[in-house]
Write a protein that binds this DNA or RNA. Structure first.
Length: 245
DNA sequence: GGGCTTGTTACTGT
DNA sequence: TACAGTAACAAGCC
């Protein structure tokens, strides 16, 4: 269930519980993290970094990553195997199928907030620099690169490339700088559309190319292919998306 | 029931 | 040694 905007929604829901200053009273679940370190700790802040959900305590941070199939439930439980339950005096946070990690370092030393597509600190100039440093990379791979666009995922990749009319197999070094800037801007723009639409439960309705299906012939000549490093499914329209190479 | 998928990491081999 | 490529892992939907 991830991609940056969804983690922002998770944070908003957790913020509504006003956990800052509250202590973790109990922990349960199948996780292998050290319960004793967390029990009794006071929450200092709730943050997000791309697809990472962060619960900050005094001496460390608990990082929750939902990976591909992770889910959560607030003040209720699901049928499936409970991985981590953090219980507070009057609230409960439950996570399923996540990747958990304790971060001992200062977050500012570990994360570059400027690369988080959802963050206030987002800096398009930094993204441009990083892209220009790897001219041979493909447009499809660059958007998924978490060091450049922290929080972008496969949906964002497909929709953004379609919007800016760039072929996924374009070499970024061949894309004119102004066009690259447009791409970078649109990653941010679309992510906020994603956030808005997800909240209104109309995200999938607004997919322009992602999950395009046969018979759904609004886009003539569209294709679906596994492309790029991770061979992630890519939907695109070779007739309108220009291949820079 | 097999084949997919909003993701990442640890291996492998060149 | 660095890198690209692959396997592995997870759960739920069709």
């Amino acid at each position: 269930m991830p991609e940056g905007p969804i983690i922002v929604i998770l944070k908003e829901e957790v913020d509504a519980l006003h956990l800052v200053g509250k202590k973790v009273l109990r922990i349960s679940g199948t996780n292998t993290i050290d319960d004793d370190r967390i029990i009794g700790q006071k929450v200092l802040a709730i943050k997000t970094y791309g697809k990472n959900f962060l619960i900050c305590f005094e001496y460390f941070t608990l990082r929750v990553h939902l990976m591909m199939f992770g889910t959560y439930a607030i003040n209720q439980r699901k049928e499936t195997k409970l991985q981590l339950s953090l219980q507070f005096e009057d609230a409960e946070l439950n996570f399923y199928t996540t990747s958990l990690k304790i971060i001992d370092e200062d977050l500012d030393d570990v994360y570059d907030w400027k690369s988080d597509i959802m963050a206030e600190a987002w800096d398009p100039k930094a993204a441009l620099k990083k892209i220009q440093a790897k001219p041979k990379a493909l447009a499809a791979d660059v958007i998924l690169d978490q060091n450049i666009f922290t929080g972008a995922g496969n949906i964002i990749k497909n929709e953004v490339l379609y919007r800016v009319k760039i072929h996924p197999l374009s070499r970024v070094g061949a894309i004119p700088v102004e066009k690259l800037k447009e791409l970078i801007k649109e990653v941010r723009n679309y992510s906020f559309d994603f956030l808005k639409w997800k909240k209104a439960k109309v995200l999938t309705k607004n997919f322009k190319i992602y999950e395009h299906k046969p018979g759904d012939d609004k886009i003539k000549g569209w294709v679906k292919e596994p492309l790029g490093k991770g061979k992630r499914i890519t939907y695109y329209n070779p007739e309108t998306q220009i291949k820079y190479e």
